[in-house]
Amino acid sequence: MEKRKFMDEPIVNVKDLSYQYPSGKDWALHNVSFRVEEGEFFGIVGPTGAGKTTLAMCLRGLIPQNFGGKISGSIKIAGVGTMSKTPGELADRVGIVFQNAETQAIGLTVREDLAFGLENMKVTREEMQKRIDRVSKLIGLSEFLEREPWALSGGQKQKLAIGGVLAMEPDVLILDEPTAELDPVSKSSIFDIVRRLQDEGVTIIMIEHEVETLADVADRILVLNEGEIAMIAPPDEAFREVSLFKDVRERVPFVADLMSTLVDQGAVPENRFTSREEEAIAVLKEYLEGENA
């Protein structure tokens, strides 16, 4: 399918977004503004209760549509204001995958599950078949199309959840801690899929606690705390602010912590700081060599 093009406009444009749940006393989100460019890998980190999932649900149009509450500001995804659309109308623009793989499958077979969104979108049979073939290969479930979803492993269920969203070919894919409840093998296979999507140019917004992985793959990272943006920056700029992460009770990768210490001590120049493991090891070797010579 031809991707829609939006000249001069970012694919995600959030302006002064504030939101309060119907039962809430405080703002769940307060004056949140950011843009995501097409093809960008945008990471979101923050402690529990920071508003990460709330933000994801706003982007998907589930808030305020399904939840009510007080909302102000604006969100545009692929040129469309989300607040005036139903979640169904947004399905081919923005897809979301949640943490709990157990509760996301609907179909009686993997094939049916992948088709579910497409049927609601009234996609033709032919097109449906093409997309199911393509997506099931991408998520590594093409051998399991006739399997019942409940008979899949946790990792496979999560792949199916990603596949069901991808079949709708959204402009933006939101992943809300998709690997939090998975074992290491399933975790890395999900990250492999996400990297492949990134290479294909899919715009990805990923809420994730695995900061080492974000340091490697993200173009930019948004740090959310108590409903407000604490920082938006590329990983190397973000993870340089070790104390900010400590303040919001989040981790930074070990190498970011190490390199920050070394830069602060003047042992390594500021422009050699990195939060990526391979690069950090290379820098350390270079400087240790220099010292030993």
Binding site: D257, L258, E291
Partner: peptide
Amino acid sequence: LLRENISNLLQKA
């Protein structure tokens, strides 16, 4: 200790 090690090694010079 690793952090201390590396920072000591780099500061020796």
